[in-house]
Computed example of a mutant assay.
Amino acid sequence: MLLPNAYRKIIHIDMDAFYASVEQRDNPEYRGKPLVVGGLPEGRGGVVATASYEARKFGIRSAMPSKKALQLCPHALFVRPRFAVYKEVSRHIREIFSRYTDLIEPLSLDEAYLDVTEDKLGIGSAIEIAMQIKKAIKNELQLTASAGVSVNKFVAKIASDINKPDGLKFIGPSAIENFMEQLPVEKFFGVGKVTAEKMKKMGLHTGADLKQLTQDDLVKHFGKTGRFYHQIVRGLDDRPVQPHRETKSMGAEDTFAYDLTETEEMHTELDKIAQTVADRLERYNLKGRTITLKIKYSDFKQITRNQSFTQPIGDVQTLSTTAKQLLLATQPDDVRIRLLGISVSNFGELAPKVKRDDVPEQLKLF
C-alpha cells in the first residue's frame, strides 16, 4: 500500500444517463417518462444507447435491442441520438473540470478521471472539489453527475456508481481493503460476463475469494489480467491520470442505429468514416503506413483487418478504398454489421503528444 504522504486524490465523474438526461432537459415533454435514446424499434437492428432512469425501472439497459426494450415497456418514448449536442455539452463539462486541475483523463463523452492532488484553487479537499463540480454541472447545464473519490482510479470509478444518480461516494485508504474484499467479481476491471461465469464456477464470487489465490494462480487462469486482479484486490492501483498520450494511432468509428446488411450501405458508411479520419490526420499533420478496419457484428463478435504500405498515407481516397477492400475480404454477404471503424497507425517517427481533450471523440451507441 502507498505511504500516506504518497496518496493521490482521484475523482471519477460519471454523468447520469447522459444522453437521456440531455434529451429530457431540452424537451420538457420527455421529463418523468421512460425515455430510450438509440435506434428506433421499427428499424433494423436498433439498439439502446442510453435509457432514462424511468425506463431502467422496466429493465431497459444500454446495448439492448430496441425491440426488446419496447416489449419491456410498451409506452416508452424512443428518440434518435443527437451526438453534436452531446459533444458540445461534454466540452462544457470538461471546461468545468479544468477550473480545478489540468490532470483530466476523459474516458468518453460522459465520464473522466481527475487528479486533484494539487488543485488549481488550493482547496485541498477532493470531496469538496467533487461537490463543487457537481454543483457547477447542475447550475450551468441543468444535469446531474455522480462522483467517486479515492486514492486510485479503480476504486474511484467503482465508488461513482454506488449512489447513482446524483451521488457522491468517498472511499478512504483505511476502507479500501474491506471494500475490495466485498466487491462482486463482475465489478472488477476486465471481468466481462464470460470471465465472471468462469470465476463463479471456480467458487470465486467476491474480492475476498480472489484474494485467496496467488498471482501465479490468477495468471494461469485469467492471463496477464490476473496480475491486475492480484494488485487491485489489495487496493493497489498505481495507474496515473493521463491527460496526454503519445499518438500511436488515429481513427474514427460509428455504431449504427440499425445493423447494416447491404454492401452498398457499408461502403457509404466507410466513405464517411474515411473522410473523418483524413480530416483528423490533416489536423495533426500525420500520415501512417498501416490502415486498420474494425468490424463489430450484431452478435457483438469483433474483428480487425489491416494493410500496410511502404510509404506513409493519409488521403481519403486511399483510406476509403483500402477499407472497402479489407471489408470485401471478410465476405460481408449475409452478415449484420453493428459498427465499422477505420484507423491509421505506424507513423514511423515519434508522433506528437496530443491532449486528450483535443482528440475528437469517437461517438458510439453503447
Rank of each mutant, 00 (worst) to 15 (best):
V277P: 06
T292C: 12
E262N: 09
A252L: 02
A278N: 12
T290W: 07
T247E: 01
H267Q: 15
E246K: 04
L270I: 15
K287C: 14
R280D: 13
K287Y: 14
D254Q: 10
D279I: 14
E264C: 02
T255F: 07
T255V: 00
L260T: 08
D279P: 05
A252T: 06
A252I: 07
R283G: 00
K294Y: 10
D259K: 07
I273C: 03
N285E: 13
M266D: 08
A274L: 02
G288V: 06
E265H: 08
A257H: 00
L293A: 08
V277C: 10
G288E: 04
R289S: 11
D279T: 14
A278V: 13
T261S: 07
E262W: 07
Y258Q: 04
M266G: 10
Y284E: 06
D259R: 04
R289E: 15
E262R: 05
E282V: 12
E264F: 04
T292I: 15
L260S: 03
T263R: 04
S249M: 03
E253R: 06
D279H: 12
E253Q: 01
D271H: 11
K287E: 15
K287V: 14
I295K: 08
I291C: 08
E264K: 01
T247P: 09
A278S: 14
A278E: 10
D254I: 04
T292G: 12
Y284W: 07
L281V: 14
K294N: 04
R283M: 06
V277E: 02
T263W: 01
A278Q: 09
D271R: 12
Y258T: 09
K272V: 06
T268L: 03
I273Y: 00
G251T: 04
K272C: 12
Y284H: 10
T247W: 05
E265C: 03
D271V: 07
L260C: 08
T276D: 05
T292P: 12
D259A: 01
N285R: 03
A278M: 11
G288D: 02
F256K: 10
A252C: 10
M266S: 00
E265A: 04
L260H: 06
D271A: 12
T276M: 04
R283P: 05
L293V: 08
V277L: 09
T290Y: 00
L260Y: 00
I273S: 00
G251H: 06
N285L: 09
H244A: 02
L270P: 15
T263L: 07
A252H: 05
I295W: 00
N285K: 11
D271E: 13
D254K: 01
D259C: 03
E264D: 08
R280A: 13
Y258A: 05
E246F: 12
R289T: 15
